[in-house]
Design a protein around this nucleic acid. Structure first.
Lengths: 251, 251
DNA sequence: TATTGACATATTGTAGGACAATGGGTCAAT
DNA sequence: ATTGACCCATTGTCCTACAATATGTCAATA
């Protein structure tokens, strides 16, 4: 009987992965900052001692994370990842895991009231103005299901943005892609426009008057309304959400 | 003066992007499920009518999202994205955005108490047993800074896992990579082992006795302790977190 | 002077071919 | 039941090539 020592399976990584890791590392270390231009593919390939094909594969790995991109269809440039870019990966993962509306709702219950609360302290005049504009818009599209949903999503984005907390923005990104779009069915079924507007108005007032508790409370009410809407409409609160937003422009 | 109509800049996407989108779409639509094998690179390239080089670039885009991978160093396979895989992209983004400890803490205050609360209803016997084992371990490493931190991180992961809410797990992934590791400095500075253990114990008891409010409350206390630790240790509560966890195995 | 056209140049997107390294399979020898 | 020898399919990597596109220059023109 052999001695029972298990060697850990040694994992050599292919060159394209090593290259991508190295670039990522240099960027994260701050040695390269957002906006910095990278050399051409050929020169980069030379520096790493690989072919352009291999280098391009490495680039793709980073491209999806949104930490590098192309300027005007040419040079490679280090970019600050956009919430939406990352969000898409996260949303894909959630779709594959068949995340239910309930699960998303629970997260929303944790983050949206928090966003409302934090926004009170950090919202700028600009933020408030954008919120005001959104409210005005909402009032005019109460019966236009499609545009009402858009306004609804924008409102919650504006509140989250007003916190100026990127970690929070990132954490709630999947709500944009999966939670609110799924709620479109409720809007079509129950036409709760008026009720939405009131909640938004209350949150907005609380933010303007710097009343964190109020903002939190109304956002929470609003979220509970969401849940009730889904349940009343019998729209699958415990079902996996689907990617209604998965419209591909081309082809 | 020319008529003031601005054409929207038309964006044609390169083939490698189109191919990657198409594959992602087929996977997200459920037509291909996790575990399904994809054809070889050559055959895939043929099907799409592109070269293997182009196809490989498309593959890389998906590989980083963790929705496809390699089996045993060979065939392509559709995989269920791991929280850690996606988390790395998210964490990279946060590092580049210079997210502060405070921002992460605010998110933690939203999600961790929530995790505690939800875990009460959904924790299985298995979950509880793992938590119990973690507590025992923690008690034995109170003075070993490194292992205490590991146990600490594991505890919060176990609580989150016990919710069986993938959306929540995903949303709090960056806490694992950035928030808790940064807390290592506090442990070294203040040796708060005993205090950590008590909080964990209280949360655990609450989960076992199905007392959501208690679990939530103690988790919240625990988070506030975190904040106080950082502030007392004068460890940069308002500074951007750094990637202490960014240890690259090779090279 | 400011716009247009013509041309040279650089770089990307894509193709196609080549080959070593590796993993899987078969089959005979032990 | 394990080992060794062999073949084969596929990946990782390299190389070369070329069309499409963007940049830059400079002369021609209104």
């Amino acid at each position: 009987m052999p001695a029972n020592h298990n060697f850990s399976k040694l994992a050599r990584q292919p060159a394209y992965r090593a290259v991508s890791e190295k670039i990522r590392q240099v960027i994260l270390s701050g040695e390269l900052q957002a906006g910095d231009m990278l050399p051409t593919e050929l020169e980069l390939a030379d520096q790493f001692g690989v072919t352009r094909s291999t280098l391009r594969e490495a680039i793709r790995l980073l491209e999806d994370s949104g930490i590098i991109g192309r300027t005007d269809r040419k040079r490679l440039v280090v970019t600050l990842p956009q919430t939406a870019t990352i969000g898409r990966s996260v949303s894909s993962a959630m779709l594959m895991h068949r995340v239910t509306f309930e699960e998303l709702w629970q997260v929303a219950m944790g983050l949206e009231p928090l966003a409302g609360k934090l926004a009170c302290a950090s919202a700028t005049a600009d933020d408030k103005q954008r919120l005001a504009a959104n409210l005005q818009l909402t009032a005019t599209v109460l019966d236009d299901h499609k545009r009402l949903l858009e306004a609804e999503i924008e409102f919650h984005n504006l509140v989250a943005s007003a916190t100026h907390n990127y970690a929070l923005l990132q954490a709630r990104a999947p709500l944009n892609d999966l939670f609110y779009p799924a709620w479109g069915a409720v809007i079509r079924a129950l036409s709760p426009g008026q009720r939405i507007l009131v909640a938004h108005q209350k949150v907005f007032d609380a933010i303007c008057n710097n009343q964190p508790k109020e903002a939190e409370r109304w956002m929470e009410k609003h979220m509970i309304d969401f849940r009730r809407g889904i349940e009343m409409g019998n729209l699958g609160f415990h079902q996996p959400v689907t990617s209604a937003a998965n419209s591909d422009p081309q082809n």
